[in-house]
Design a protein around this nucleic acid. Structure first.
Lengths: 209, 209
DNA sequence: TGCCAAATGTCAGTGACTGACATACTCTCC
DNA sequence: GGAGAGTATGTCAGTCACTGACATTTGGCA
């Protein structure tokens, strides 16, 4: 079991070593961020704690923020696959919503836990939030392209795929902050909040309450 | 005429000087960004071009990105006022949509032009995009609070105000990127795109197309 | 074993941003 | 109009994220 992606079985010693170094950096970083806070931890300290040079840190991660965002990496591809697997009679937002649920059920518990830690950390620092939002913006465009392809419309002229993707990620992000703000730590509740918001958003914007 | 806010008439010499320095920094920064690009322009160059020290630059703007975002500053308050002025029988998203239209009609052409320049610049650099998205996130929370107050619901328990605010800004942002990507420079088209997307978003997410 | 390519370390440098302190300027009160 | 208070600015030193260049080590492979 595991992430169902990562077809790159670490065949040689070199690749195994690389994977270990990367994991050591993530582990050291998340631990230090938890202990001293994101801002108060330097990249040199993380590198030293993982027994590599600072230069090596930046060969694995393009920025300090990227280390935190690495936890969500790979989840996207899983989501897109899940969207592709949804039946075509489901409308775009419903398909994305159900794909989110499906993908979460398939995920490894360790990956889920790391995801939760990362999300809680993001809520403590505005630089991280900015990086996360930019990252979501990229994923949003990929989802828009996928939804356009799924429905057989031209994404260059039809704004609807882009709109659904924008609403989807905005709602998910909304669930994220709501979950963090509620002080809960149970990941089931995070997913439940996101799915609940996705269920409500259509009525919330079309009716007068 | 004028921004309708900015009740701070520059009464003394000191305040007039401050306003002039700030404007000189914005003007120098936007000019240099346009000539050499955002990344290739240093804060020292901007400061020198405005005849102040780099330290003074950072007393006016907390970061390099903030100088670009300064153009949108004040537009928020205008938007909130416009929302408050919309009749209560309009549902939340419609009120926000019409408020956006109203606010744009009231704005100064110079302010609008600066806004357009800033938006086009943001589209050229991912650091700026990240800063802009974080800024939108703050504005989104304020709009959510306003919508909750307007409808008389509790924003702590009812997710709908937050959802509408999230959808509103996501859609506006979507219009922004669509406008930039189309290569257009006419601000009327920017507003038209945003309003058009706001009109379409409800049907786009609730129907199967 | 020996060659090639990839991974890493070291070093010097850039640029955003900050705190501390001294100086110059504006405002106000008399 | 001048003294004192408060504010804006310049200067300087320093931190930290991040990068390019080059030398060194290390794993893959003939």
């Amino acid at each position: 079991m595991g992430t169902a992606i990562a077809e790159h079985r670490p065949t040689g010693l070199r690749e195994r070593k690389k994977a270990r170094t990367r994991e050591a950096l993530v582990e050291a970083g998340m631990r230090l961020f938890g202990e001293r806070g994101y801002q108060a931890t330097t990249t040199e300290e993380i590198a030293a704690s993982a027994d590599v040079s600072q230069r090596t840190f930046f060969r694995y991660f393009g920025s300090k923020e990227e280390l935190v965002l690495a936890a969500q990496e790979g989840m996207d591809e899983l989501l897109y696959q899940a969207v592709r697997a949804r039946p075509l009679q489901e409308c775009a937002l419903t398909a994305a919503r159900n794909a989110l649920r499906d993908q979460w059920e398939l995920s490894d518990t360790a990956v889920m836990h790391a995801q939760g830690e990362a999300l809680r950390l993001i809520d403590t620092n505005t630089d991280l939030l900015a990086a996360q939002l930019r990252y979501c913006h990229e994923r949003q465009e990929q989802l828009a392209a996928l939804l356009a392809e799924r429905a057989g419309v031209d994404p260059a002229t039809d704004p609807r795929p882009g709109l659904v993707a924008a609403v989807f990620f905005a709602t998910v992000q909304n669930g994220h902050t709501a979950w963090c703000r509620s002080g809960r730590t149970d990941l089931k509740e995070l997913v439940a909040t996101m799915l609940d918001h996705l269920d409500q958003v259509g009525e919330a914007i079309t009716t007068n309450w």
